[in-house]
Design a protein around this nucleic acid. Structure first.
Lengths: 244, 244
DNA sequence: TAGTGGTCTAGACCACTCC
DNA sequence: GAGTGGTCTAGACCACTAG
């Protein structure tokens, strides 16, 4: 089998440079030749070399400053990127049968307990709120307990949706495609009704994900996702690889 | 206060386009005019418009295909990006006093329990392994229990380091700056020695982070980081914002 | 104040893909 | 086969900043 050639000019140079950085040939602090010089060395135009260096900078591999040039960055702190996927897809990806079951649906004002659970302010969730609770199943076993409040001022259509059929998260995604979210993840000892619903003994460790979704400055929905701890794990890969 | 002007040509167009997508002016599936047309409309060169569209595509907002043109993408599944930072920085960021305390350090072969705990294969960690355990403190309270094995074939210098002074994670970061890592996060009920060291009752929920670091195909170090559950949470923001 | 990166242009050729 | 995005060039001006 022949060695695969890289596809583009700037792609090849990008790979070479990132290799140099990752394998230590260019250690942190190393000063790269200037743009015009590199362009000449590699026989490309300045724009092409600029594309490479701009990309390296945006990925955090190098720091570029006028007059002082381009230097290899100090490595980023150990870090990780997690992707929390759609629950239905997540279950399907595990090769299991997915089911959603709505437990309750109330259009009412939120009380202090709701606000605490979902991490809302006092002003938020006082009215125009739709409270939902339901279970996600994987092969008929409880996989995730979802407690959610939807701001019906932002999403009035939600009042007309049958959430026994439509999974709230998925429906919201199709309705408000591009939103911002903030997540908090922690471990808790499950108790009370949560334990009963998840069919877990009181005190079992669970992974709690709080997700607050907003569009501009307005919150759209807040969800609390409770996963049986030992059964579920977030998996993340992190590397300095460029591209993809 | 005057309205802030955007800095660059492509920056302004990028903002405009991403706004159009996020606020629904351009819904998923919307077909954008072709590159040359857009360039003409905005009075810029094709390269500049290409920069905008290429960026939009790399951020996942649009799909570009030859002949068929550029269309607004179906929104990505709900997802989140977590950053796990250096523990010392993490504690400092909370405005607390940080301390590291090494509990044990052994250069030995790993047994089955070690491998299970750290998620290693049988072939890995059989020799050339340095086992460490220590506690990270926040204001003199246990913040994180770290159990780690270092592949001394990859990092021979590690045998000469005094890990009572140097925090393993930080030291490795300065020694092998650009590495890849895989993380597994789950909730567990703490027990035994782990509970004692973290000064927690048996059964308390903890967040367990398994981090396996490698360079190319070779593992460098595996760490198990155990955080008292209620006290620690991962925080992540995710949005479709472009730039930064 | 001189050198560096930041940005932009006008034009060109190519490759892929849909009709 | 025709039209689209993908890529590249040579040259230009500007803004910032280190010395």
């Amino acid at each position: 089998m022949a060695i695969e050639k890289s596809d583009t000019l700037h792609g090849r140079i990008l790979e070479e440079f990132s290799s140099n950085i990752v394998d230590g040939t260019w250690p942190p602090g190393y000063l790269l030749p200037k743009e015009t010089e590199l362009a000449e060395q590699y026989g490309v135009s300045r724009m092409t070399m600029n594309k490479v260096l701009t990309r390296l900078a945006s990925e955090g591999f190098v720091i570029r400053r006028k007059r002082s040039g381009t230097v290899v960055a100090q490595p980023r702190a150990e870090s990780a990127v997690f992707a929390i996927n759609n629950i239905g897809e997540e279950v399907a990806a595990l090769g299991r049968r997915y089911k959603w079951s709505l437990l309750s649906s109330d259009s009412r004002a939120g009380n202090a307990q709701d606000r605490r659970l979902l991490g809302l302010n006092e002003d938020e969730a006082k009215d125009n709120s739709l409270f939902l609770q339901g279970l996600h199943f994987s092969n008929d076993e409880p996989f995730c307990l979802e407690t959610r409040v939807i701001n019906t001022k932002m999403v009035p259509d939600a009042l007309g949706v049958d959430f026994e059929k439509d999974v709230p998260g998925s429906w919201l995604l199709t309705t408000m495609p591009w939103t911002k979210a903030r997540h908090h993840v922690r471990a808790i000892n499950v108790s009370g009704r949560d334990a009963t619903l998840l069919e877990l003994p009181v005190g079992a460790a669970c992974l709690e994900v709080l997700r607050r979704t907003q569009i501009d400055a307005h919150w759209v929905t807040c969800a609390r996702l409770l996963y049986p701890g030992e059964a579920h794990q977030l998996i993340a890969e992190f590397d300095g690889k460029i591209g993809g």
